[in-house]
Amino acid sequence: MSGKQPIPPKVGTIWSIGDGRVHFLEKGVRDKEPVILLHGCGSIAEELLLPFEDSEFRVIAPDRPGYGLSTPIPASECGPIGQSFWLERFLDCAGFTGLTIVAHSIGSAPALHLAARRPDLISKLFLISPCCSPVPPKAMLILRAASAPLVGGLVRQHVISRWATFFVGQGLRASSFPNTVPSRLDGLPASHLVNPLAVQTMADELRAFNRDMQLLPSLPPHLIIHVLFGLSDAIIHPALHIDWLRRKHPAAFIKVLEGVGHLPHHVAPDEARNMLANLICPQMPQGTDQLPLDHVA
């Protein structure tokens, strides 16, 4: 065991909404256009905020329900559809309309559902390595054990939580591959990222993912979508999700980066910030800037 003290999480603002609380971090000038940041599975607001905290815009990053300091929602509502209603309540409480949302990985799923259902709330999406198409099941033996009846609580409390730094390190290396883990991620609070509640939330949202994404309708034609993928993503298969997005929204602007994995916003932060700025204040015609789909395999 090392003698290092646990890294504390960053604490921002906590709102009481309905029966729960929503914690969020905020950076930028308050009179600028707000941009909402939605983190992926097993992450927190602090992680997705890092590449955008010096943005020229007002960026607001909530912990999604069950992660960080935000109250969980019932397991039956943890899928993308249920989380889209959670997001809707948060945005309505803030009084936002016509928003830009930046979403990473599975955080893209509730954003897409809300954009389809409430086009008045969301006008632009910047999706980073989006996990949005229904996917083949993975083994994920540790996560399955952690959510199993009877023994799951013991695994969450005495295995995963006790070795939080190890599991977070493993996850970051897998997500960064083939790139090295960016040094800025060394400061993430491992014990806050991986705790019994967050692990259960991961299992619940993954369990409902395919069912909910099969129900997503075509997206509103006025919605503007920019997508950034790492071509060497080993967590999800870019071709599967790019093809699915094209069917839901043929006008999406999709850019892929050679030699980049599941964390392009950390590996190529300037590219991510430039794409966000160009989404909000367009400087080039809408269209595609990507490899042909048969090269995105």
Rank of each mutant, 00 (worst) to 15 (best):
K255Y: 03
P238V: 05
G230S: 06
C281S: 14
A272P: 04
L245I: 15
E258A: 12
P238E: 10
G261C: 09
P250E: 12
P238M: 08
H266N: 02
Q286P: 04
L279S: 12
D270L: 13
S232T: 03
E258I: 10
L293V: 14
L245A: 05
L231T: 00
D294R: 12
L263I: 15
I242F: 02
P250R: 10
L231R: 14
L240A: 07
P269C: 11
M275K: 00
L240M: 11
G259K: 10
P269S: 10
I236C: 06
A234N: 11
N278M: 00
M284R: 13
N278E: 07
H265T: 01
L228N: 02
S232L: 01
H262F: 06
A251P: 01
H237D: 12
I224E: 12
F253A: 09
F229C: 05
C281F: 05
N278P: 00
L291D: 03
Q283V: 15
P264V: 14
H265C: 13
A239F: 04
A239E: 08
L223E: 07
Q286I: 09
H266E: 03
Q290R: 11
P269Y: 06
I224H: 07
C281A: 14
A239T: 04
I224V: 15
P269K: 04
A268R: 15
F229H: 12
V256T: 15
Q290W: 10
Q283P: 00
L279Y: 12
C281L: 13
I224N: 08
L276Y: 01
N278V: 00
H262S: 09
P292N: 11
H262P: 07
A251R: 14
H249Q: 08
I242M: 10
Q283K: 14
I254W: 02
E258V: 12
K248T: 06
H262W: 11
T288Y: 02
P285Y: 04
H295S: 11
I236M: 06
H262Y: 08
D289W: 11
P269W: 11
Q286N: 12
L240I: 10
N278T: 01
L293H: 04
A268S: 11
V256A: 12
L276P: 00
H241G: 05
I254D: 00
P292G: 07
D270C: 04
H295W: 09
V260L: 05
P250D: 05
D289R: 13
E258M: 05
Q283F: 01
R246D: 07
K255T: 15
L223Q: 05
E258G: 01
Q283W: 01
M275I: 13
G230E: 02
L240W: 05
I242E: 01
P238G: 06
I225F: 05
S232F: 02
K248N: 06
D243I: 02
I236Q: 08
P269N: 07
A268L: 09
T288C: 07
M284E: 15
L245P: 03
P285K: 12
D289E: 14
H266S: 00
S232W: 01
Q286Y: 04
I235Q: 14
P264L: 08
N274Y: 03
T288V: 11
R273P: 01
L276N: 00
L231F: 01
L276G: 00
D294M: 09
F229I: 06
A277C: 08
H237E: 14
I235F: 02
A251M: 09
